[in-house]
Amino acid sequence: MATAHGGTSAGTSTTKRPRGAGTRAAPAPSLPPQAAHDLDLLRQMLLIRSFEERCVELYSAAAIRGFVHLYIGEEAVAVGVNQALSEQDAVVSTYREHGHALARGVPPDAVMAEMYGKTTGCSHGRGGSMHLFDAARRFYGGNAIVGGGLPLAAGLALADRMREESRVTCCFFGDGAFAEGEFHETANLAALWELPVLFVCENNLYAMGTALAREHAQTDLAMRAASYGMAAWAVDGMDVHAVEKAARGAVESIRAGNGPHFLEARTYRFRAHSMYDPDRYRPKDEIEEWKRRDPITAFTEGLGKAGLIDPAALESLERKVVEEIDHAVQAAEQAPEETAETLLLHVTGKAEEAPS
């Protein structure tokens, strides 16, 4: 029976530890498991934040081009949800997917090279910011069409069920996609066919420049999703622990055969919709109010109060993350461009047809 909750009532599970952002450093052996896990969560969020901030610099310097949609402020959602997923599960993302890719374990070098359009990128330089893809990690985009990933997620889940695979497909999308027909059609079929899909709606209150309340008469998206006959609830998307707990509970229930689940992660993007966006539609005081709930700052303060990290250790961690991003940028700048001879590769499958 469908339920809609206003909190994070989902339980915890013992699913195996998923892939995390980039290459993980082994935790200090003296730390208890939960402490090591929490420090790893912080590292992943810092990696995403550092990557995105570097993208701002590179875009401003015209080193990377095209549309760039930043994930700054929403890091707790990608990192928290991915803790519940195994390597065999699938992830379908949106065009704001740098954070999703890094949290899934796509190496920063491969993501940055893709931003540069280089052949060493995860999509071989063909996708850029909005079309990150890594089949080996079952990361299926990166979709530039709003809501375009939703039916793909249903297809992946249906294929897994027909093959009797115990897998979950996690589909990230924004509140703007909730208004698209793809969501309602996919939600209906997923519930009707009891597909193993975790729908994660990153509700950052704005569909591009349109406020949620100006687009939806009922703004409780979890309650609306429950009307399709799936378990659905809202979670604080600025709290990585709350997101992880909710995601683990949902994934555990999906694996038990209870059909699709829906999480509404209530979050906020600190930057404009894209690097092209002048961001004149959001009140400045609203932005500042949400920044005071920065998921990284809040989590770091909690770790400090628990005695798990001090200013020196935090500085060291931040320095290592910046060095990792520095290496990714350097590798991307040195990576080769695609040659004319291979332009038709992956298009027709016949590279020899490329123009001379």
Rank of each mutant, 00 (worst) to 15 (best):
M1V: 12
S9V: 10
A10T: 00
A10E: 07
G11Q: 08
T15Q: 08
K16D: 14
A25L: 13
A36Y: 02
D40W: 01
D40R: 09
R49G: 01
R49S: 04
S50K: 13
S50C: 12
S50Y: 11
E53A: 01
V56R: 15
S60T: 13
A63R: 05
I64A: 04
Y71D: 09
E75D: 07
V79C: 06
V79M: 07
A90W: 11
V91H: 02
Y95P: 02
H98T: 13
G99F: 01
A101F: 02
A113W: 00
E114G: 05
M115C: 06
Y116K: 03
S123F: 09
S123K: 03
H124N: 03
H124C: 05
G128Y: 13
F133I: 06
Y140K: 00
Y140Q: 00
I145D: 04
G147W: 11
G149A: 01
L152M: 11
A153H: 04
A153E: 00
G155V: 03
L156M: 11
R163P: 01
R163G: 03
F173W: 11
A177P: 13
A179P: 10
E182S: 15
A187N: 10
L195Y: 01
P196I: 09
E202D: 09
E202C: 11
N203A: 11
A207Y: 10
A211I: 00
A217C: 02
R224D: 02
A225W: 11
A226C: 06
Y228G: 07
Y228W: 07
Y228S: 10
G229N: 04
A231D: 09
M238P: 02
D239P: 11
D239N: 15
V240G: 07
V243P: 09
E244P: 04
A247S: 14
R248A: 14
A250M: 09
S253G: 06
S253M: 07
P260L: 10
L263W: 00
R266E: 14
T267H: 12
Y268W: 15
S274C: 05
Y276G: 07
R280G: 12
R282D: 00
K284Y: 11
R293H: 15
R293Q: 14
F299W: 05
T300Q: 06
L308W: 08
A312R: 13
R319V: 12
K320G: 08
V322T: 11
E323W: 02
I325Y: 00
A328I: 05
A328M: 03
V329C: 09
Q330C: 05
E333H: 05
A340V: 15
L345C: 07
V347G: 05
T348Q: 06
K350W: 13
A351G: 02
E352K: 06
